[in-house]
């Protein structure tokens, strides 16, 4: 009995650790190289992922690329950037569609490489990936956006 309780406690601890954002990790917002946008304010980024702003300045529709639930970028998106939960986020997006507005296009990809590759192939896509994944080959041909004028690694960069 004692053993079972110790096992349950360990699983809960692991789950807590899994869903908690790594306080040391940093994240980057990446877009297609053809995208004219080079710099975003953090609130604009938040606005894009909240579905408030669904078009790029060239009037092409924004495709949000998100990582699968449980991944660090998704937890960062939910916990730090949007400050919401996956369920709440899903309901807010459904509300937009219920309102008859242009639905938010969201693509869930199961790795940073896939996210990068997707952004590479879709000019209107934007994704948040870990800055560590920028070194992957799949992330070679895409553009990293400045957030509030800062690139990842620079002092005052805020996506972390």
């Amino acid at each position: 009995m004692g053993h079972i309780l110790r096992l349950i406690a360990a699983l809960l601890a692991a789950a807590m650790l899994h869903y908690a954002a790594d306080p040391a990790a940093a994240f980057a917002a990446v877009v297609h190289p053809s995208n004219a946008t080079r710099d975003l304010h953090l609130r604009d980024l938040t606005s894009l992922f909240e579905g408030a702003n669904r078009q790029w300045p060239n009037r092409s529709g924004v495709v949000l690329v998100e990582r699968d639930a449980g991944s660090a970028p998704f937890r960062y998106l939910m916990g730090r950037l949007l400050n919401t939960t996956p369920g709440e986020y899903k309901r807010s997006l459904q509300n937009i569609e219920y309102r008859g507005e242009t639905p938010v296009s969201i693509k869930i990809l199961n790795s940073d490489a896939a996210a990068c590759q997707y952004v590479f192939n879709v000019p209107s896509a934007i994704a948040i990936v870990e800055t560590a994944s920028l070194a992957l080959p799949a992330c070679g041909g895409i553009q990293v956006l400045r957030i509030d004028g800062k690139l990842p690694g620079e002092e005052g960069y805020r996506l972390k």
Binding site: G61, V63, S105, Y118, V122, A125
Partner: peptide
């Protein structure tokens, strides 16, 4: 083809 693939990826 890139455009086609982008449309497909966009769904």
């Amino acid at each position: 083809r890139d455009q086609i693939m982008a449309r497909i990826l966009e769904g």
